[in-house]
């Protein structure tokens, strides 16, 4: 299970046949295990990692520190769930330290991102304060470097 996941985490397009050949096992078995992990939501989804600049898209991203009031029943979860469900929110984590939630937001421009914070996020009951930081330049995304290293002057044949 773990070995299959490792390969899919590296490359979600790896086919069950390919995975079976890499792991020296049966392709049907791999297919069955992947299906099971998808059904059990062990695998939450598959997505492409895109360089927005190369795709010629303007995207504004911000990370927002959010302080919220925990509730008697459910603690932070109800407010966190509510925030996480917005389409603009790309990720949402409960944090230790000086704030409670770290929310990553994406929008087509600054106006949209700012409007989301002022009109949606900060008006949710239980949200005490927000501090918004805009992303200036990404260097690494989900473990993938934007500027990938290559070593092209490697000798073609060596002992």
């Amino acid at each position: 299970m773990d070995a299959i996941l490792k390969i899919l985490e590296e490359n979600a397009l790896a086919s069950p046949d390919f995975i079976a050949e890499c792991l020296n096992c049966d392709a049907e078995e791999v297919r069955r295990k992947i299906k099971k992990m998808e059904e059990d939501k062990v695998i939450l989804g598959y997505k492409a990692i895109v360089d927005d600049e190369k795709a010629e898209r303007t995207v504004v991203r911000a990370v927002i520190e959010v302080k919220i009031t925990p509730e008697r029943e459910g603690g932070f979860n109800r407010v966190a769930d509510r925030i996480a469900k917005f389409q603009e929110v790309k990720s949402c984590y409960l944090m230790s330290g000086s704030y409670d939630l770290l929310v990553e937001v994406e929008g087509p421009d600054l106006k949209h991102a700012a409007a989301f914070v002022s009109q949606k996020l900060s008006t949710i009951q239980g949200v005490l304060s927000t501090a918004t930081h805009f992303v200036l330049k990404p260097y690494k995304e989900q473990g993938t470097l934007y500027a990938q290293e290559s070593f092209e002057d490697r000798l073609k044949v060596s002992p």
């Binding site: 290293e149 070593f151 490697r154 000798l155 073609k156 044949v157 060596s158 002992p159």
Partner: peptide, 13 residues
């Protein structure tokens, strides 16, 4: 354009 399986060193940096 040769694909080399002739290399005796890791391809990793």
């Amino acid at each position: 354009d040769v694909i080399s399986l002739g290399i005796g060193e890791p391809d990793f940096v």
